[in-house]
Design a protein around this nucleic acid. Structure first.
Lengths: 186, 186
DNA sequence: TCGCACATCTTGTCAATGGCAAGACCTCGG
DNA sequence: CCGAGGTCTTGCCATTGACAAGATGTGCGA
C-alpha cells in the first residue's frame, strides 16, 4: 500500500456511503470512515475541512447524480411520468445519497456546489414539466413544484418507512401510479 | 427551585425543541439540553433512556400534533385541499418537530408510540381522501398516497431550502395552488 | 406521626468523537 | 540532487453519550 493513497477523497466518499447505509447519516463518524478506508483518523482533514464538508460533498454528488438520471429519463422521450419514476427509483437505489440530501442540518445548504447541483436537478424537473404543460395556460412553476413535491415526498415517505411497501411491490410501478394522479393540462 | 423539577420530562422536550430550532436536530446535545433546563447532565436519563428516546418522543409528538391539525382541518368541512394546506402549515409552523419527524436515523422508527402517531396522521389523510374520492372508481389508497406525498414533499422541500419562497409568499397560498394540481376523480 | 421504599437528581468516570497542532513521509519541479 | 509543498501520521484536548454509585426529596403505609 503506497503512502499516498491513490484517491483518498473518493475512497472516503465511498466509504462514507457504506457507513451511511449501515448506520444512517447521523451516526456516521469521521474516525470510523477513516478506519474503514485504512487511514489515520486525521487523514480526512486534508480533503474535507469538516465532517459537514464531507456530507455536503455527498449531498451535492447526490443531487448531481439525480439530475443526470432525470436528464436521461427525459432523453428517453417517454411520458412525463417517467421523470417521476426516475426520481423515486434514484432515491430507493441510492438510499445513502438521498438520506444525506434530505437530512436537515447535516449538509451546508449554502455550499455553492450543492446549490448548483440542486439547481440542476430542479431545472431538469422544470424542463420536463414544460413539455407536459405545452399549450397550457397554467402556471408552469406551480406545476413543476407540484410534480417535484409529489415525487420527493413519495421517495421520502418510502425511505422514512412511513409507507410500508409490500415486499413484492415494484417501486417504479408505485411511482407510476402515484404520478398519474397529477392533473393533466386543460 | 425545588429539587424535584415540576415536570422535567416536558421541560426537556421543550428545551430540545428550542435547541433544534437553533442548531438543527443533528447538532443537538443531551448535555446542552440538560444545561438549558438547569439540571445536571445525567438528569435526562431517568426520563429518556437514550438521546434517541428523546428524539423519538419528539417525533411521535409531532406526528400526533399533525394528526390533530389534520382532524381539525377536516372538521372545518372545507375542500380536501384544506387538509394539504394544514399539513404544510403545520410543517412550517413546527419546524423543529417536523425536522425530527423526517430526519433519517434520529428517531427509532419501530417505537410503538411513534408508529401509532404516524398511523393516526396517515389515517387522517386517508379519510380526507375518501371524501374526495366519493363515487370514484379509482384506487383510494393510491390517491391518498399521492396526496400525502404531495404535501409531505412540498413541506420537506420548503424546509430543506430547496424551494426558495419569496419573502412575501404565503405558505398556505402556495400549498393551495400546488394541491390544486391533483387530478380530481373522474 | 413516623419511617422507609422509591423515584428523582447529582457527581464521578470512561471510551469515543471532532478538531487542531506538529512532525514524518513522499512526490515532483528545478 | 535537493528543496518545496502536498499527503498522511501521531499526539493532544474539550465535548459528548452512557453508566455507576451516592445524595436528596416524596409519598405511602403502619
Amino acid at each position: 500500500m503506497p503512502y499516498h493513497h491513490g484517491d483518498l477523497r473518493r475512497a472516503l466518499l465511498d466509504t462514507a456511503l457504506e457507513a451511511i447505509e449501515e448506520q444512517g447519516p447521523a451516526a456516521v463518524s469521521l474516525r470510523d470512515v477513516a478506519r474503514r478506508a485504512g487511514v489515520s483518523h486525521a487523514a480526512p482533514t486534508h480533503h474535507f475541512r469538516d465532517k459537514t464538508a464531507l456530507l455536503t460533498a455527498l449531498a451535492a454528488e447526490g443531487w448531481s447524480l439525480l439530475a443526470d438520471a432525470l436528464r436521461e429519463a427525459a432523453a428517453g422521450g417517454g411520458e412525463f411520468a417517467e421523470l417521476g419514476v426516475a426520481y423515486v427509483v434514484f432515491a430507493t437505489s441510492h438510499p445513502a445519497h438521498f438520506a444525506v440530501m434530505r437530512a436537515p442540518g447535516l449538509a451546508r445548504t449554502d455550499d455553492p456546489d450543492l446549490e448548483a447541483a440542486m439547481g440542476r436537478a430542479s431545472a431538469e424537473m422544470r424542463s420536463g414539466v414544460r413539455r407536459f404543460e405545452a399549450g397550457s395556460t397554467r402556471d408552469a412553476d406551480t406545476t413543476s413544484l407540484a410534480a417535484w413535491s409529489l415525487v420527493h415526498g413519495l421517495a421520502a415517505l418510502i425511505l422514512e418507512g412511513a409507507v410500508p411497501l409490500k415486499a413484492d411491490a415494484d417501486v417504479a410501478e408505485v411511482a407510476r401510479a402515484v404520478t398519474a394522479r397529477l392533473r393533466p393540462p386543460p
